[in-house]
Nucleic acid binder design. Structure first.
Length: 425
RNA sequence: GGGGGGAUGGCCGAGCGGUCAAAGGCUGCAGACUGUAAAUCUGCCGACUCCGUCUACGGAGGUUCGAAUCCUCCUCCCCCCA
């Protein structure tokens, strides 16, 4: 696929700011551009917020340009103060090394490392930052930045003003390290472009400035919008916390649920940002979505695209099926295959109830911890809010031997979206 | 130091000797409606061996057949005068 990634990203709403839009655009038309984004391994997994930059790299590559992802072990050891209101704790070397392994793996999922001249690269900035001596850095890099310039940064200012917060010399230096990275890539990989979240704008400009002053080269920068969802929350956060890319931290089911729950007002934007679907197709999807919003086809498509690409086709299908079982009106116990039971049990809280006799649903619910007391269980059932294996329970109903899935599990739904697996102990 | 007011269920806030497991509001939960939405309407919202019983109205005692309600002491809050 060819095309101008700048144009594509612009029309998809992925560009918040660009240092030299026209120049960069024509550069894309005239040569193979190398561009990079840095990812600091501050956790052992990236999260959905990182998907936008990753999409940016992927688009570049699809258009025939060369993406570089920096796994920023060097910078990760220092800590980026951008957008942070207070000094952070340093991560230990072991933590950063450990995080680096999985972060590299996740970056790899979106990029092609074997497609000729524009094969993607993952590089670790510790390779060069680690070798840099303090005196060399101060003479060859620090000299190009005045403190006046550096304290002009908004986040630096805010922390200088407030004696409670303050900023350490370490974090203050971060922007120079990132500028150094850019300059290094410029010189060694002909990398002329750096992209990043909008909070990176200052760091990116520092790099462009350094390249101009130190080697007399012209470099470019693009930033992505920082997303908020329609209800004003931070994108990528749910009640359950951050939505991670790692399946261990956020199961494929949860990941799928995150996307399927997108607000109507956001879904078009999200399709543009997080999928490779052509704009015309997104238009079609949105047309039918507007006609029948209750079907939520747009959300389903979004969830499918993103989940399948990150986790693979099979995990996506299981997540989708689990979702229809959990949120469907009813289902047959036979649909709960062992594989499905496994997923459901890992997503749904559970508890055990005494295995003797045939207890009443009320006893099971209270004993297993699904309800805080028998009274509560009784109330719920009387209110029509309890479903056993997908069918609504009446106050007089008993638990039948046939209700026991695999001979031991009872699958309850309490109200609209609370689920509970009670297992015979 | 003197005087006055108050402490009620997750929160706010009535009650001022029996009819009080405690009005009303908010929150929460469920049902209907619906799109795994919002709004709206309805029900529930201490526990249990559930047509009954037990534990509860700051804490400890007391008066009464009977107290969240009256008395005494204690703890904490607020206000006014020094």
């Amino acid at each position: 696929m060819q095309g101008n990634p700048m144009a594509i990203m612009l029309e998809r709403g992925c560009v918040e700011w660009c240092s030299h839009p026209e120049e960069l655009s024509s550069l894309f038309d005239s040569e193979m551009v190398t561009g990079y984004i840095g990812f600091d391994p501050t956790a052992d997994s990236l999260h959905v917020g990182h998907l936008i930059p990753m999409m940016g790299l992927a688009w570049m590559q699809r258009c025939g340009h060369r993406p570089i992802a920096i796994a920023g072990m060097g910078t990760g050891l220092i800590g980026d103060p951008s957008g942070k209101s207070k000094e952070r704790n340093l991560l230990t070397l072991e933590q950063v090394e450990k995080n680096l392994v999985t972060v590299k793996e996740q970056l790899g999922q979106f990029l092609d490392f074997d497609c000729g001249p524009n094969s993607a690269l993952i590089v670790n900035n510790h390779d060069w930052l680690g070798k840099q001596t303090l005196l060399g850095f101060l003479r060859d890099t620090g000299k190009y930045f005045t403190v006046n310039y550096m304290i002009g940064r908004e986040y630096v200012k805010s922390r200088l003003d407030d004696p409670e917060k303050s900023i350490s010399y370490t974090e203050f230096s971060y922007m120079l390290l990132q500028a150094f990275d850019f300059c290094h890539l410029f010189e060694n990989f002909s990398c002329k472009l750096q992209m990043g979240g909008n909070d990176q704008q200052g760091n990116i400009i520092a790099g462009i400035d350094l390249i101009r002053k130190k080697v007399g080269g012209q470099a470019y920068g693009i930033t992505y919008p920082l997303l908020l969802n329609a209800s004003g929350g931070k994108f990528g956060k749910t009640e359950g916390g951050t939505v991670w890319l790692s399946a261990e931290r956020t199961s494929p089911y949860r990941f799928y649920q995150f996307w399927i729950n997108s607000d109507d007002r956001d879904v078009e934007k999200l399709l543009k940002l997080f999928t490779f679907l052509p704009l015309e197709e997104i238009e079609d999807i949105m047309d039918s979505h507007r006609a029948r919003p209750e079907r939520r086809d747009a959300q389903k498509r979004l969830a499918r695209e993103v989940t399948a690409r990150l986790h693979g086709e099979e995990p996506f299908k299981m997540a989708e099926r689990a979702s229809t079982i959990l949120f469907g009106d009813s289902f047959e116990p036979s649909e709960l295959t062992p594989g499905m039971i496994k997923i459901l049990m890992s997503e749904v809280p559970g508890g055990v109830f005494p295995g003797d006799a045939a207890p009443s649903p009320v006893d099971v619910l209270a004993a297993s911890g699904a309800c805080a007391s028998k009274s509560e269980a009784r109330r719920l059932i009387q209110g029509g809010g309890v479903y056993l294996n997908g069918r609504r329970l009446n106050p007089a109903d008993e638990v039948d031997r046939q209700d026991l899935i695999e001979g031991k599990h009872l699958f309850f739904r309490l109200g609209k979206k609370r689920f509970f697996v009670a297992s015979k102990g």
